[in-house]
Design a protein around this nucleic acid. Structure first.
Lengths: 342, 342
DNA sequence: TGTTAGCACTCGGGAGTGTTGAGTGCTAAA
DNA sequence: TTTAGCACTCAACACTCCCGAGTGCTAACA
């Protein structure tokens, strides 16, 4: 168990390193107002803190920097929640001004606000597709042999895919198919569409539709669509301003990761609701070994909708980030609840 | 007018600099097989070429590098078109294997192929929206107060937008509106939708529809959608491998530009058909002052559809890039023509 | 016994210096 | 006209030196 004074010093060092990004020496700690021990005393404590694994030395004659364990302790025990400033609240509120912009736009906007306020990179995952259900399906021919299949979900999300039409298709037949689908699939979760198609629907179609085989393969194609939740970024390049990323090779690796939506949505999907903080190796993903990911979920009526996250260096302004993320996720939940319930 | 020998030397220097990214000295030029003059002779010619503005010296005791004028001359006069290698052709063909994937997927795929083959960054602009016309419009309610408006174009492109519904809306009314729209707007270019709405349609609606005002504002909202052509990237991070981009601040600026679709689509829209090469300041965009942009257009039946471009350093493998871009744009045109005509 | 002053020690980083080698430009000879 | 020869230039690199920020240890002090 750490002593009062050790806590004080640990907090001072982490605070200082977070703002200045440079190893913290005993002298600068002893100069702080809330601390009046001599540098020598501080040094002794620092040495102990290092032994306990909370601090590290980049090299023998430098100051100390927090270890991952140090950050973890700082986050878990030393952080007093901080109210948002007026500006921050105003910034967030402005997002809700345009009341009826598209839901995806709202989410995209959240990502932007988040990155602006924190000056890190934000990642927002849209509503998880596998939770949403079919509202309507539509097949619009665009030529004699191709059509666009459109799926609208209950969350207002639209997916579309170009599919080949069977030759000599009767347009009325197509209409019949669409009607059958809409009658029997409304409210079915997207992930179950293919099941339903092969079990129930195919029988009905067989009965009423001429070009049964072709139709079935067409529909199979339609329901195959990716079904990934959407990934929105805010301030992709913000993180480059951090001295930790002053190396093009690192930037390259990071941005390669950014390109892979699937990887991103796996990495940033949280295990549970609420706010989680993953520091360094806790991410279990080597390229993020000295990054911190803070994730919050947003939800509608207790149903998890998606997540909003911040990606930054382990040397992150935890207090601000947590405050903002917490506030924003709740506000977003409120806003979406309003939307969906109406 | 340059002498035979000067041409030979200029070409040698540009070739060499393109592959090695280092200033070229007289000795290394004289060692080439196709050149047998002594370094001293070469030096004299190089000095002349510098005076003429085709070459530059980074500093007094370094070799020469091509100036923008040098590249321009090289591209215009010294480049022999080169056939694609088998691998390259196979790579491109593989793109067409999945015959009925979405058209946007094909275009996205082109971008990827392009960047893979060239190891630069590729930018592909989708079909220009203002050329496409309305195929069908659909308004799907997702709650009592919100709906998704969906517009399908003749090119198979789908746009959607969430809109607010008037209170106490009669669903039948909505259906009537949609029917009217579909009957009278099919084939109208997207850019003219709003015009048509205020001129012709509004009168019809006024006659048949109860909640006229609310409906009109709803439709206005629907037709307001961005109408930008889509921007696809391939190998965004490829360009970071170029030594020219070994500076995080530069990378930051570049990627900030990448984020702005509108800027990108303005920058990469060509003035005319065919292949254009913009070297350095010819781009008239300061951040691209030492980049080259090679752009080709693809089209269907002579109608310009979009563009495919390569962004790389001025020190670019022009020959390869031109060959690939030329081939790919033609193949893409062919493919799309097939699609649209069916 | 906890705290602090004093001091020797460490080490990264910046400034200064010398050397190397690739390259140039000029001159004079072939 | 071409080329060999030579003096000159300059970036890059290695080397040294020194400074200063910081540490750890010890001994003295409250």
């Amino acid at each position: 168990m750490l002593t009062e004074r050790q806590l004080l010093i640990l907090k001072a060092i982490v605070d200082n390193y977070i703002t200045h990004a440079e190893p913290v020496g005993s002298r600068s700690v002893s100069k702080r107002e809330d601390i009046d021990y001599s540098p020598a005393t501080i040094r002794n404590e620092m040495s102990d803190l290092e032994e306990l694994g909370f601090l590290e030395k980049p090299h023998s004659s430098a100051g100390r920097i927090p270890s991952h364990k140090g950050y973890r302790y700082y986050v878990d025990h030393l952080l007093s929640p901080k109210k948002l400033s007026k500006n921050e609240i105003i910034g967030i509120q402005s997002m809700f001004r345009d009341r009826f912009s598209e839901i995806e736009q709202v989410i995209q906007q959240s990502a932007k606000i988040l990155s602006n306020l924190t000056s890190y990179t934000s990642i927002v995952l849209g509503p998880e597709v596998f939770e949403s259900t079919l509202r309507q399906i539509q097949i619009v021919p665009i030529s004699s042999s191709a059509a666009v299949a459109i799926i609208v979900t209950d969350t207002g999300h639209v997916e579309n895919q170009t599919v080949a039409l069977p030759e000599n298709l009767d347009v009325n037949e197509l209409e019949k198919v669409v009607n059958i689908l809409n009658a029997s699939l409304k409210g079915v979760p997207l992930v179950k569409l293919r099941d339903k198609l092969t079990t129930e629907i195919s029988k009905v179609l067989e009965k009423y539709i001429d070009q049964y085989d072709e139709m079935l393969s067409l529909l199979n194609k339609t329901f195959l669509s990716q079904q990934n939740e959407k990934v929105f970024f805010g301030g992709k390049t913000n993180i480059l301003a951090q001295p930790e990323f002053n190396d093009v090779e690192r930037v390259r690796r990071l941005f390669n990761i950014f390109e892979e939506d699937e990887l991103i949505s796996r990495l940033f999907r949280p295990e549970d609701k609420g706010l989680t903080i993953k520091i360094g190796q806790e991410n279990r993903f080597e390229p993020f070994d000295d990054c911190t990911v803070v994730t919050a979920t947003y939800s509608v009526e207790g149903k998890n909708m998606g997540t909003i996250s911040i990606l930054g260096p382990t040397r992150m302004e935890y207090q601000r980030v947590i405050g903002i993320l917490d506030y924003l996720s709740k506000d977003l939940s409120k806003l979406l609840t309003k939307r969906y319930q109406q």
